[in-house]
């Protein structure tokens, strides 16, 4: 099944599409992993405020 998420579509092409769930999951993971790393590191740093 073709997806407009992987290829550009001319404005005139109105064929329905389906965005694969795997692509959405990959995209969120791709940005989520570095964000989780940053959050973890920052929480670790922030915890020193409460560590006495």
């Amino acid at each position: 099944m073709s997806s407009s998420a992987s290829t550009g579509t001319p404005a005139g092409n109105r064929q329905p599409t389906h965005t694969p769930a795997a692509l959405i999951a990959f995209a969120w993971t791709f940005v989520g992993v570095p964000l989780a790393y940053g959050l973890y590191q920052t929480v670790k740093t922030a915890s020193s405020l409460f560590g006495g």
Partner: peptide, 13 residues
């Protein structure tokens, strides 16, 4: 015009 989504595109991308 190359990136106009077709019907059914999932906006959560």
């Amino acid at each position: 015009e190359r990136i106009v989504a077709r019907p059914g595109f999932n906006r959560w991308l």
